[in-house]
Write a protein that binds this DNA or RNA. Structure first.
Length: 287
DNA sequence: CGCCAGGGTAGAC
DNA sequence: GTCTACCATGGC
């Protein structure tokens, strides 16, 4: 093992790491000794912002610049996205001004994202985080950086190999253990190819349909996975918070459509970046 | 103790 | 299509 490396990533656009990670829909970031500690694609990474750059430390020789640029979606023209959303809706325009640094992340492991959102049902954010971390600690590999100890997230193969016992013992609740096993089986059977679904040639509708083919994955969880890990920016996850925000801002005097109808209304109203609008509405409710 | 929480499902109308 | 009970655990 080589010594840890310290590098700096040049951002080249308005960016605030603390704001990005605070609003991030990724449950694996921790504070550690003045750094943000996270596990990305099996790498333990420490990051912090220095001026207009992001400084990071990691053990890997692999090109983490590319990984982080993809993760933070620095390839998005965020100014153009904000302009497009603002021109479509007055409320969203005000939220863009209020939270200019909020971003969607492109999570590198759609399987981890899937398990995370299966864990998210009827749970608070710290509880979701604890469940995901418990799974990693139980079945992942230990990784260290400086004095920090974390765990990689186990692949579906590992989850299948150890069988249903370990997840059951974690007492995840609401049949979450069985739902995770079921999703892993669909991946093994080739019925759920998450990596292929992350490609642009697989459209949002197909990705969502395939995700919902899993027992325990409905509209909301499918939209979360599509938005945060499968690069489908028109996805619009409707949870209790977003539903309330929509009722307050857009359906005060009208009857609010339910389920899929509301998602389609949002996609028509907000356009191809509906996911960013969703992120703004959700974050504002949390705030 | 009672209540509710980033959902999903099956069974009842 | 819409409503309801149920699934389980932890925090308040």
């Amino acid at each position: 093992m080589t010594d840890p490396l310290t590098r700096q990533l040049v951002i080249g656009q308005p960016f605030c790491l603390d704001a990005v990670l605070e609003g991030a829909q990724d449950f694996r970031w921790r504070s550690w000794n003045g750094w943000h500690s996270g596990v990305l694609s099996g790498n333990l990474i420490h990051i912090r912002q220095i001026g207009h750059r992001v400084e990071y430390r990691a053990d890997s020789d692999s090109d983490l610049d590319i990984l982080l640029r993809r993760y933070f979606r620095l390839d998005d023209d965020i100014a153009a996205i904000h302009a497009d959303l603002s021109s479509r809706d007055f409320k969203i325009a005000s939220l863009v001004k209020k939270y200019p640094y909020l971003r969607i992340l492109r999570q590198p492991d759609p399987w981890e994202c899937t398990v995370s959102y299966i864990c998210s049902a009827l749970a608070k954010i710290p509880q979701i985080s604890e469940k995901v971390e418990a799974i990693a600690k139980e079945l992942g590999n230990k990784i260290k950086l400086d004095g920090d100890v974390r765990y990689t997230f186990p692949t579906p193969e590992v989850v299948l190999e150890v069988g249903p016992g370990p997840l059951k013992e974690l007492k995840l609740g609401l049949k979450r253990d069985r739902k995770i096993m079921a999703a892993a089986k669909r991946i093994r059977a080739g019925k759920l190819n998450l990596c292929r679904m992350a490609q642009p040639q697989v459209c949002y509708a197909e990705a969502k349909r395939r995700l919902m083919g899993c027992d325990g994955i409905g509209d909301k969880i499918a939209d979360c996975i599509a938005l945060f890990a499968l690069d489908k920016l028109e996805a619009f996850p409707v949870d209790t918070w977003v539903e309330k925000a929509m009722a307050d801002y857009f359906f005060l005097c009208k009857k609010q459509p339910a389920g899929d109808e509301l998602v389609m209304w949002a996609q028509d109203h907000f356009g191809k970046y509906a996911g960013y609008a969703n992120q703004l509405l959700f974050h504002d409710q949390m705030d």
